[in-house]
Design a protein around this nucleic acid. Structure first.
Length: 513
RNA sequence: GCGGAAGUAGCUCAGCUGGUAGAGCAUCAGCCUUCCAAGCUGAGGGUCGCGGGUUCGAAUCUCGUCUUCCGCUCCA
């Protein structure tokens, strides 16, 4: 099924709506509808129980979205999460202004090295590179250009002076790499963090950021959690929560949104053991995904460029309709975050290791998955249009959402075979009123039985319970399976025992172990 | 943010060179119906994405804007 049909289905059946649609929508923001929120909650529950409930040494928190501004100074986001961008008017391409200057410096350095290589060839054994660098006019000129550009770049970046950066690009006569055009726009600062004001205070003192990742809420609570849970290394802290990034381009439905939900676990370990834990969590997380989705839809993808905090990083990618894309990241974050917070806060963020009889800042291996991306993965994998099983006519098709029963929004639908028969209706409603105490169920009688089945198929309900005339005599009902369409007769009092184990999370959690 | 395309009922679309909107499906009500989108009758639902302009008159022409899709750029 193509991507357009998927987004249409998601809207039609109450999974995903465009945000603020009556006002023409807000770009890259989406709302979860009645079925969407049920599915998403189930996915979050699967993650939470797998991480927290099933690990002695992982505990959960739920930190505030607002955090002290210094948090983002320490984490590096104020400095590194900040892109000065410039457009070329002729080629219509966008560049990072600082990268353009850095490329220029690299180019000059290339010339300088070429000069030295030439001299080395000329002088042979007798060549003294240090002396040559100190005296040769060309080399000194190149070095001067490099130092000058680097100095001005550093000053402009530190001051956040975009005007100076623009001037620098002009002074250095930098042209667009592909077309050679020098027709540049102004440089604009693009900070990927959203900011807001605390209280009525205007200006820098009151400036707050919406967190761009949930991880920092865990790091700043490291000591609190350790003190209150008596956890010993290695141990982890898990959290599910919203994060916000002012993406330049947010697109592809709910894949990249400016407001999104992360499910993160920071695992604190002895320095030196990060490789071992990194590998362990890589495998554990893949296995967790394999309980929901087939191997061929998933793959590892190593990072070439590491983030400022990481010494190793890998993505678990999922094959979306638009290609293999990141679903989860596993990062070895070293002691970068805790050390930075320790320095800026002046509070010790260390662990006393009784075996080694010393204190140290723990290393961290992080697993971080996008809840919305997982939702999209589940939807794209499950949604299909197929010929109705057991029907010969190839035109007889149905749209079915073949979700794992444990994550399906509605576990069972109860429907009377005929809605104009009071006895059938009242028995069906009695069953509904009992089952709703056990799991998410829906009562429906607005249509023929075939239509009701199709409606449930479209939202992924694994079981349909039909009350027919035999039910009135022997207190049994039929249970129809979403995937096979097969029906079995079950006594009403056995329904919970029969359906319950198939729709709860136990088997899913076990298969992920 | 730039370039291209699109926006008419919940959905899919029709609406000729400007004359104030239709279909099918869906929804709801009634009748009918003993297991995979049956049938009959009826109803509700659109100031044609939004805002200007041209015109006696705009869904239709024009400008702007918003949103979506594709490409570029970006992606901790």
């Amino acid at each position: 099924m193509d991507f357009k049909a998927l987004t249409a289905h998601a809207k039609e059946y109450g999974f995903i709506y465009q945000s603020s649609e009556i006002y023409d929508g807000l770009a890259a923001a989406y709302d979860y509808g009645p079925n969407g929120v049920l599915l998403k909650n189930n996915l979050k529950e699967y993650w939470w129980r797998s991480m927290v409930q099933l690990h002695d040494n992982i505990v959960g928190i739920d930190a505030a979205i607002f955090m002290h501004p210094k948090t983002w100074k320490a984490s590096g986001h104020v400095d590194a999460f900040n892109d000065p961008l410039i457009d070329n008017k002729d080629s219509q391409k966008r560049y990072r202004a600082d990268v353009l200057v850095e490329d220029y410096i690299d180019k000059v350095e290339g010339k300088l090295n070429k000069e030295i290589a030439k001299a080395q060839k000329r002088f042979g054994e007798a060549f003294d590179e240090t002396e040559y660098r100190r005296t040769n006019a060309n080399v000194l000129r190149y070095q001067g250009q490099m130092d000058d550009a680097a100095g001005k770049l550093a000053t402009a970046m530190t001051d956040g002076n975009m005007e100076a950066l623009r001037q620098l690009i002009e002074d250095l006569d930098i042209s667009e790499p592909d077309t050679g055009s020098k027709n540049w726009t102004e440089v604009r600062q693009f900070n990927l963090m959203f900011s807001t004001q605390l209280g009525n205070i205007a200006g820098e003192e009151g400036k707050l950021y919406l967190r761009p990742e949930t991880a920092q809420g865990i790091f700043v609570n490291f000591t609190n959690v350790r003190n209150t849970t008596r956890q010993k290394l290695p141990f982890g802290i898990a959290q599910i929560g919203k994060a916000f990034r002012n993406e330049i381009v947010a697109r592809q439905f709910i894949f990249r949104m400016r407001e999104f939900e992360q499910m993160e676990m920071q695992f604190f370990i002895q320095p030196g053991t990060q490789q071992e834990w990194y590998e362990k969590w890589k495998e554990a997380r893949l296995k967790w995904h394999l309980a929901l989705h087939p191997q061929e839809k998933l793959r590892f993808h190593d990072h070439d460029n590491l983030a400022h905090y990481a010494d190793a990083a890998v993505d678990i990618q999922f094959e979306f309709p638009f290609g293999f894309k990141e679903l989860e990241g596993i990062h070895s974050r070293t002691d970068f975050d805790l050390t930075a917070h320790q320095e800026l806060s002046g509070k010790k963020l260390q662990y006393f290791d009784p075996e080694r009889e010393e204190s140290y800042v723990p290393y961290v291996v992080e697993t971080s998955i996008g809840a919305d991306r997982l939702f999209l993965a589940a939807l794209t994998h499950a949604l299909r249009e197929e010929q109705v099983p057991g029907q010969d006519d190839p035109k007889n098709t149905r749209t079915v959402l073949a979700l794992h029963p444990a994550i399906a929004p509605i576990k069972a639908a109860i429907m009377p075979l005929k809605r104009n028969n009071d006895e059938l209706v009242s028995l069906a409603k009695r069953i509904f009123d009992d089952l709703r105490f056990h799991f998410e169920v829906q009562y429906d009688d607005t249509g023929s039985i075939g239509k009701l089945y199709r409606r449930q198929d479209a939202v992924g309900t694994p079981f349909c319970i039909t009350v027919d005339f035999d039910s009135l005599d022997d207190n049994t009902v039929t249970v129809r399976d979403r995937d096979t369409l097969e029906q079995v007769r079950v006594r009403v009092e056995d329904l919970v025992g029969m359906i319950g184990p198939k729709v709860d999370m136990v088997s899913l959690l076990r298969s992920a172990q």
